[in-house]
Design a protein around this nucleic acid. Structure first.
Length: 321
DNA sequence: AAATCGTGGTC
DNA sequence: TGACCAAGATT
C-alpha cells in the first residue's frame, strides 16, 4: 500500500522528460496548464501591461486576503486617483483610508502609502526591481515581492500564495489542503516545477494561481474541468480529506477587538469631522474593550485624537497627516 | 512562532 | 446559521 507521499514522487518525477523546465518535472503538465491558462485567464485590469509595476503592486497589496471581486472596483478608482507612487505619497492618510473603503485590514492602506513614499524618495518614483528593495517596502513580504517580480517585471520567482500552495499540495503532495504555515518542501516543490525561462515562469505562476482560483478551489474543486487532473496525486489517492483540519483554528469575530476596531473605523470613514467619545459609544458598548480597541487604533496610526487647548480630547478622526 | 489584523460572500 | 474562506504581513 503506497502512501500519498510516495505516489507524489511518481507523479512529480516519474514522467520527467527532457526538461525544458526545471529538473524532475513533466513537460506535459506545463503544456496542459499553460494552454488552459491561455484559454481561461480572467481579463483582470492589473494584467494589462499598461497597469505597470505600480498597478501590479497596488493590486497585490489589495489582494492580500481579499477576494478579486471586491478589489477590482477599488483598484480602478485608486489608480485613477493616484496613478503614480509619488501621487499616493502626497495624499493624506485619511483620504487613503477612505479610498480603501471596506477592503479590510486597513493598515495595508497606510503601508501602501508609506511604500509609495519610499519609492518616491529612494527609487526615483519607480517600483524597485531588486527583491531586497521590494522586501524593504512596508507591507511587502515574500509573496508580494515575488508577485511583483513575476507579474510586473516578468522575471523568474517562486510565487507561493494560497492558491499555488493548494494546487501544488494536491497535484504533487497528494493532500487536500496545505498546512497552516508554509513548509520548506512547498518552496522546493514550487521551485522544482518552475520553468527556467523568465516569461515562461511568469506565465506558469499566473496559471497556477488562476487554476487555484477558478478550478482547484478550497471547498469544491471542479476536477472535471482541471487540465492536469490525470497527473494529480490527490485524485489518484482518492481525494482524501484534509489532514490539517484539527490544527486550523477558525478566527473569531463576534465580540472581538477586531470587530470593535472595524466599527470605529467605519464610523470615522463616514464622518465629515471628529467624533466624540459619546458618538463612538453609539457603535460599541463603552468598557475595557472599547478602550483597548481605540487605543490600538491610535497606536497603529489608524485613528488620531484631536485635542482641545486645555489638553483634553475633543474627538477622534482619521489621521490627517 | 503563534496571534493579530477586516470584511463580506458562500454553502 | 455559523463556519469557512479570500493573490499575507508583521511582531
Amino acid at each position: 500500500m503506497t502512501t500519498p507521499v510516495e505516489r507524489l514522487d511518481v507523479a512529480a518525477h516519474g514522467a520527467a522528460g527532457a526538461g525544458r523546465v526545471g529538473s524532475g518535472s513533466a513537460p506535459d503538465l506545463h503544456l496542459a496548464l499553460l494552454d488552459w491558462f491561455a484559454a481561461n485567464a480572467r481579463d483582470l485590469p492589473w494584467r494589462d501591461p499598461a497597469a505597470g509595476a505600480w498597478g501590479v503592486l497596488v493590486s497585490e497589496i489589495m489582494l492580500q486576503q481579499t477576494p478579486v471581486a471586491r478589489v477590482e472596483p477599488r483598484w480602478r478608482d485608486w489608480m485613477a486617483r493616484w496613478p503614480t507612487p509619488t501621487d499616493l505619497a502626497a495624499a493624506s492618510p485619511a483620504d487613503v483610508l477612505r479610498a480603501w473603503d471596506r477592503l479590510g485590514y486597513p493598515r495595508r492602506a497606510l503601508r501602501l502609502r508609506e511604500a509609495a513614499g519610499v519609492i518616491s524618495r529612494d527609487h526615483d518614483g519607480r517600483v524597485p526591481t531588486a527583491t531586497a528593495d521590494l522586501l524593504a517596502l512596508p507591507g511587502v513580504g515574500s509573496y508580494t515581492a515575488a508577485a511583483v517580480t513575476a507579474f510586473a517585471y516578468r522575471r523568474r520567482a517562486v510565487v507561493l500564495d494560497t492558491n499555488v500552495r493548494r494546487v501544488l499540495t494536491r497535484l504533487v503532495g497528494g493532500q487536500a489542503l496545505p498546512p497552516p504555515s508554509v513548509l520548506a518542501v512547498e518552496s522546493e516543490r514550487a521551485l522544482d516545477l518552475l520553468p527556467d525561462g523568465d516569461e515562461d515562469s511568469a506565465r506558469w505562476n499566473a496559471a497556477l494561481m488562476e487554476l487555484g482560483a477558478l478550478v482547484c478551489t478550497a471547498r469544491a474543486p471542479t476536477c472535471s474541468a482541471c487540465p492536469v487532473r490525470t497527473g494529480c496525486a490527490w485524485r489518484r489517492a482518492g481525494a482524501p480529506a484534509d489532514s490539517h483540519a484539527a490544527k486550523r483554528r477558525t478566527q473569531a469575530w463576534h465580540g472581538t477587538d477586531r470587530q470593535a476596531r472595524g466599527r470605529f473605523l467605519a464610523a470615522l470613514r463616514a464622518a465629515p469631522g471628529p467624533l466624540t467619545t459619546a458618538e463612538l459609544a453609539a457603535v460599541w458598548e463603552p468598557g475595557p474593550q472599547f478602550e483597548r480597541a481605540l487605543a490600538g487604533l491610535l497606536a497603529d496610526g489608524l485613528v488620531a485624537a484631536e485635542t482641545a487647548p486645555d489638553g483634553g480630547v475633543r474627538g477622534y478622526t482619521l489621521p490627517l497627516a
